[in-house]
Every structure is written in C-alpha cells, then in structure tokens.
Design a protein around this nucleic acid. Sequence first.
DNA 1: CGAAACGTTGACTTGTTTCAATAACTGTGG
DNA 2: CCACAGTTATTGAAACAAGTCAACGTTTCG
Lengths: 282, 282
Amino acid sequence: MIHDYDRQSLNGDKAHHQGRIADDLARVRFGEQRNPAIGAEPFERLGQCAFILKLAGYECMTDRLLSEINSIRTIRRTFDRGMSLAHEGAAGGGAFIVDEGWTFSSKLLPQGARQVLDIQIPGDIAGLQSLAAPFAVHNVTAITRVEAREIRFGALAETFVRCPNVARLFFRLATAETGIAGERLIDIGRRTALERTAHFILELATRLRLVGMGMESGFYCPMTQCLIADALGLTPIHVNRVLRDLRRARLAHHHRGWISLLDAPKLADLAQFNSAYLTQFH
Amino acid sequence: MIHDYDRQSLNGDKAHHQGRIADDLARVRFGEQRNPAIGAEPFERLGQCAFILKLAGYECMTDRLLSEINSIRTIRRTFDRGMSLAHEGAAGGGAFIVDEGWTFSSKLLPQGARQVLDIQIPGDIAGLQSLAAPFAVHNVTAITRVEAREIRFGALAETFVRCPNVARLFFRLATAETGIAGERLIDIGRRTALERTAHFILELATRLRLVGMGMESGFYCPMTQCLIADALGLTPIHVNRVLRDLRRARLAHHHRGWISLLDAPKLADLAQFNSAYLTQFH
DNA sequence: CGAAACGTTGACTTGTTTCAATAACTGTGG
DNA sequence: CCACAGTTATTGAAACAAGTCAACGTTTCG
C-alpha cells in the first residue's frame, strides 16, 4: 500500500536478475506461493480475514468451526504507531488478534536493554502467552497503526466448552508459537549475525505470504534497524553493517520500509532456511 | 539421592557463609521453598507424582480434573541414558510426560551444530510442540535413565471433549513453555555468558524445587558442560571458563553432577533473576 | 587396566560491541 | 514552502567477549 514506487522499481530489477530455475528453487524453499495447507479454496469461502486464513493452515476449517470462532466475543480496538497494547506485569489483560498493521512483543531488562520476542503481522495473535496468565508476561507495542480485536480468556474458555475443536486449534497456535521462538533461539544461539539476519528476513517473507501479503520480490517491512537488532540480539550498528553486506552481496535490500529479496535461493542457502516450522501443519 | 557426600559437605559450608538475612532474601527471590500456588495441600492429596504437582501450579486441582487427567491413556516407557525419545521430522510421535530422569529437546544444524531448546525435568512434558503436529519438530534425548509416559494427541483431544478444563490446562502448559523459551531468548540475546549461565542455574534450581526436588544449597544436575553450552549458545570451552569464574567468585560450584548454590542472592543479582515467569500462575 | 568421554588450561583469532561523529530522512509548525 | 527538531541510518577506529586450535589432566565404565 505504502511505498508503491519502490516496489515497482524493484520488480523491474528482479525480472532481469532471476531466471526460471531460480524462481522454482525459491518456490520450493518457501513452500509454495500461498499457504499450501489450505489448498485452492482460500479467499473465496474464508473471506480475506488474515486470522481465519492463518487458522485454516492449522485445522480443517469446517463451517461449524468457522462460525464458532467468529462468535467468540472480541472488542475491536485501534492503536497508533508506538502505542502499547499490553504491559509486562499488568493484570487482567487479554490477547489481541492483529487484523491490520504490525506489533512486536518484548521484555525489558533492568539496564534498559530490550529483547524482542516475536513480531506479529496480520493474522497473528499478540500476547497469547498472557491470555491464560494472571499478569501480562511481556509488552506488546504497535509498530504501525494497528487494527486489532481484543480477546479475553473467559470468552475463549467458554468456547472451549461448546466446541473442543476450538481448544485444539488454540493449543496448536500456542505450540506453533513455541516453534517460532525455538527457531529464533537457533538464530541467536548458533548462527552468525549475517545468517541470522538472512533467516529472519526469510521468515518474515514466508509468514507474510501465508496470509496473502508480500510477494516474491519482497515485502513491506516497517521495522527500524534498531527493532531488528533487538529481535536478533545484535546492536543496531551491527545490523546496519550486516544489511549493507547483504545489499553488497546482492542478496537482499532494505530501504525505506521495503525489503527486496534480490536472490532468494542464495539467501535461503546462506541462512539454511527451511520453512517447515511455519507451514507443516495438517 | 546420588552424590550425598557432596550435598552434606556443602550444606555445612553454607551454614557458615550465610546469615538469616541472606537466606530470607533468597527465599523472596525464588518465590518460596515449594510451589507457592498450590499452598499447603501438596503431597498428601495429590500424591508425589511430579507432573500432577506441577499442574497444580497452573489450575486449581479439583478431584474431577485430577481423575480426568489420570484417565488419559498413556504408555509407560523407559529410556536409557543417551537414547532418543523423539526424532526431528519423524511422523506420528507423541509427547512424553517425564516421571523420572532428565531429557533435553534440541535441533541440529547442517554443519553439526546443535541448539538445545529446553531441558525437561520430572513433571515436564517433552515434545509438547510435536504433539499436535504431523511431524516431530525437534529431537528429544534422555540425559539420564528416564521413566516416561507417552501421550498421543488423539487421546488428549478426546479428553478435551469430555473435560474442557483439561484443554485449558494444556493450553496453559503450552503458553508457559513459550515463556521459558522467551527467557532463554533473553539469556542468549542480551546477557553475557556469565549472567546467562547464572540465570540458567537459577532457573533449573527453581524448577526443581517446584516439583519438590533440589534444595536451597544446590541440586543434582546430570548435564555435561557440552550440553550446557548447547543450551546457552556458547562453546563448551567457554562454559568451562564461566563455571570456573562462578566458582572463584564463590557464587556457584559445579562438580560431579552436583551444582551447589554458594551465594544465591548474589547469583540472582548477577543474573537479574526473577522467578515470576516460572511461578505466577493462578 | 585401558579406552572413551568429559573437564581444564593457554595462546591466538575473530565477530561483535562500544564510542564517536556525521548524514539522511520524517514529520511538525511557522 | 522551508526550517527545525528528532529519529533513523551510516561509517571508522579501538576495545572486548567469545570462539578456535591444541594439548593435557581427570573421571567413568566396560
């Protein structure tokens, strides 16, 4: 939507640089263009709600299940860029289904350091961990303007009673989140700054495509280098250098809120990226 | 049980080094001796099964809930030290309730590097993430001889239907696991090797006490330095040096499978350890 | 006892951080 | 429309934490 000028110019670039073989490779690496698990029926029946689209990757979306999920009572809320959706330690908060915009969850350390635990894009739930806890376990902050639906554990638990399949689904959502955290753990623990940045970029690209956003050539990414640094356990200065190296190696380009994948197959090779942890659901 | 000689000698040591104030401080830092959430009723009514003891920290253990959980069909299995309970990518495996012994879950990188995602002690579930997935998402390996009960998603989902509170409980277990992963993320991303090792030791000490194992003076820990290294994203050589530094600073001592907490308050200070993410449940 | 696993230490190298300074962009108000 | 302040990005040089390589000591177990 924003930065259309950049998107177009880079599309042009890419057509020159990449042949069909590279394209096919990329497709294999990423698991298909769209969420493969939901097959051919995506937008028509399910609507274009990113959340439902994502859920369809976890469980077979029967009409019953769909209507039960849609009947969970939520409160629609809007947040401006930089606003806080949830505060570490605050009591009684719910989780947020992010419909539009991006958020991040983080924890702060006494000396002022920050660790970003995860990024939420449309279709994700922010604060799932805090949902069943008496206190919010981490902060959630809006990266862009955000349209979200707040969901309370009480309402969810009621639905668990009526429809156990909703319970199954949320159990899966919770475990999938641990999977993403685990991959980030490998990033930070066992990959160099270059590999880990490449891996992070590919993860975002894949997750965005699973909800129908982003394209092969790249994606809109409102994260500052500072935020990327806090997500990857690096300093902003080093992130800058790493991004420069990726640019010089003609692998990826980050400019003005747009990340372009100049050579996805080589990038995936560098990062040892395997999308299985994001796509293998049912 | 093992290494009683060491435990006793170190108890003696500690009585000399620490006064009442330091002891109280340690108690506050750790949240009490035993799981505070389950109050005074622990062993008598619930039996001494570590798993049930742990669950009681998450939800109020009614007799109904207790009997539903105990009626989930499981398969009792024993594994020798070093044996694999689950294999990354293998289809159709379940999760394992660890009754006795320790396990670890890990992922392997192409070049042979390994990242330990989490340690399971008695009462923990190994492979919870893989339970609802079509393929195991990581390896689970026995650190010691292990007594476990294998649990299948089918059997669990049946119980979800009969008793929604079981669904609530497992949802909480899953989100709590993400919490531990998040804390490890901070460890690796934003703490120095010294702080992170100290934090890891305190986390283990706390988790062990929540299921009635380990004591103020220290705990039995069958992890090799190599395994600790893979859990903390360090090299074994560096872990060795860090443990030496902790020993020389008279904070903690790791010797022959026994970790003794020589000065828990100072250690907690160094690691900025706050047990909330392990104890604040209901 | 001997072999294999595990732990320990030193010297050297590398990746990342820190400090410091400057450039580019973003949004706001005059 | 431009000037301004604040944020974000960029670069270089020096300092440091952790990794690598290599050797040797210690424990464990068949």
